[in-house]
Design a protein around this nucleic acid. Structure first.
Length: 492
RNA sequence: GCCGGGUUGGCUGAGCGGUUUAGGCGGCUGCCUGCAGAGCAGCUCUACGGGGGUUCGAAUCCCUCGCCCGGCUCCA
């Protein structure tokens, strides 16, 4: 594994050479969704970037153990399941499925697990008890809290200085019984309403008992948000993660709190590389439900395909602002189509006749040029996942292959450069669901129709020739005439 | 109030002191075509939020002002 991957690490605020703890294996964790509504296109920026990270590490030969959590218990899942009059388990399952469907539609490679918070309640209780035992947490009437004064490094990730931080309305409105407003909940005692509801409904409250100051105290309730990730990362990946990724909004307080909990418990470094993804904007503004500029995932995919969408996301570096606009999507659609056309042309040509068996300067030149572009691509990706520069190389390769295709080609050489191109596209997750061109019989049948049409064309019977082309098009088979003859591709 | 990011041609989006006005998209012309599509070749757009300054030279460094985005307790 001779490479020099570097990632920008939020903690050190610098690009760092990436070296996993165990050679060849990457333990990675990305914060997933809270399943209380359909995911929107903003959420998918971080999921696509995580997918790119996943694919790139695999391209570089790592065994990537990626975990993405699903938060299926919190204030919003409780609130909205009541509003919708659906049992919480059914409610969260619905949106978990919606999330997974989105991953598939966008060709996002699956993580090895999508653990749900509610499955890890016993481990959370154990974790919280351990923090109480270490005297870094305390128990009050309404919950268990982490005492941030016990963790002197608190703030090291976000750079936040609590003394200079404004106490916002949200903090002021906090009604919990905490010693300090900055402390955060590890366990929340159920409200009366939740308690009643939980008598005939699973997934809202759990029995727990904690030993505090020598006394055993029962407290039916639910975990705080931050403890989920600390517990699931530890249960599935161990004390130290190579990479922890998520949206930029999670830096504070979520990830800051995860560090505090986990490092207090284990005494070890929690995460070696923190990777945060910038939020998506829309028409220059923050995307939010309250502003009414919220775009659903299905709405976008009804207008633009998954590859256009992926191109839109990856054409800008993941730490740069990205603005969703119609213009940007049109540019992405056209640009990605151009990259795909090269695949279509090369594949059609590879299906065609052999017409050059020699290897001369032309062949030597294109192989060398494409190897160089491949190197630029890899260098860019190694440099903190610079997908924008990598895509530039893809355009260069596309142009080189197109140029070669316009000449007398050697199929062996074409196949060689085609496979390089395909592999690089694959590493960014492009064109994962290309239409199959069918079996041999289908191909032969299409060729029969093409021959027939070309006979009509030779006889200048263009009406019949066009009618055949139209009929094939209705089956998704697109004919392209060029100087050497007719080639075809499959479209859906 | 405190902290961080951004502001580039018709669009998208690099560049972070000096070989070409990066690429890509779009538009135009030519080649190829019965038409269409794709491809190729060439052309077009000479832009860097405003104002100062440093420098032989600034999109790039410094100051200042404006606007936008994000974080400041549960939002990817």
């Amino acid at each position: 594994m001779l490479n020099n991957i570097k990632f920008f690490d939020t903690l050190s605020k610098d690009k760092k050479s990436f070296k996993p703890l165990s050679p060849g294996v990457v333990k990675a964790y990305a914060c997933g969704p809270t399943v209380y509504s359909d995911p929107h296109i903003g959420n998918f920026r971080s999921f696509i970037v995580t997918d790119m990270l996943h694919r790139w590490l695999e391209y570089r030969g790592y065994n990537v153990q990626l975990i993405m959590n699903i938060t299926d218990i919190d204030d919003k899942t409780i609130r909205d399941s009541i509003l919708n009059k659906i049992p919480i388990k059914e409610f969260t399952l619905k949106y978990t499925k919606s999330f997974l469907r989105g991953l598939d539609l966008l060709n996002i490679k699956r993580a090895i697990a999508y653990p749900r918070a509610t499955v890890y309640i016993p481990q959370m209780i154990t974790f919280i008890q351990a923090l109480l035992d270490k005297n870094v947490a305390y128990l009050t009437e309404d919950g268990v809290y982490f005492d941030i004064d016990k963790f002197p490094e608190y703030g090291k990730l976000s750079g936040i200085k609590l003394s200079e931080t404004q106490i916002t309305d949200r903090v002021k409105k906090d009604e919990y019984e905490k010693e300090s407003v900055q402390d955060f909940a590890l366990w929340k005692k159920s409200t009366l309403e939740e308690d009643n509801r939980s008598k005939n409904e699973e997934g809202i409250a759990w029995d727990a008992s904690f030993i505090y100051n020598g006394a055993q105290i029962s407290m039916r309730g639910r975990p705080g948000w931050h403890i989920e990730c600390s517990v699931m990362t530890r249960s599935l990946l161990g004390d130290t993660l190579d990479i922890h990724a998520g949206g930029e909004d999670l830096v504070f307080p979520h990830h800051e709190n995860e560090i505090a909990q986990t490092e207090c418990l284990t005494g070890k470094l929690f995460v070696r590389n923190w990777l945060h993804i910038r939020h998506l904007m829309i028409n220059g503004k923050k995307m939010s439900k309250s502003l009414g500029n919220f775009v659903s995932f299905d709405e976008v995919l009804s207008k633009y395909n998954a590859d256009a969408f992926r191109y839109f996301y990856l054409n800008t570096h993941y730490r740069r602002p990205l603005d969703y606009t119609e213009d940007a999507m049109i540019v992405a659609t056209n640009s990605v189509k151009k990259l795909e056309n090269t695949l279509n042309l090369a594949e059609a040509t590879l299906r065609g006749e052999e017409n050059k068996l020699d290897y001369d300067q032309e062949e030597e030149k294109i192989i060398k040029q494409i190897e160089n572009q491949k190197l630029s691509f890899e260098t860019a990706m190694d440099d903190d996942l610079d997908s924008h520069t990598a895509i530039e190389s893809l355009h260069n390769i596309s142009g080189l292959i197109n140029d070669y295709l316009s000449k007398n080609i050697n199929k062996g050489v074409l196949l060689k450069v085609y496979l390089i191109y395909k592999k690089l596209l694959d590493s960014l997750g492009f064109f994962q669901k290309r239409e199959s061109i069918g079996d041999e019989l289908t191909q032969n049948l299409v060729n029969v129709v093409i021959d027939l049409r070309n006979e009509y064309r030779r006889n200048k019977n263009y009406e019949k020739a066009d009618a055949l082309r139209k009929k094939l098009a209705s089956l998704g088979i697109i004919l392209l005439d060029n100087a050497e003859g007719t080639i075809w591709k499959k479209e859906n």
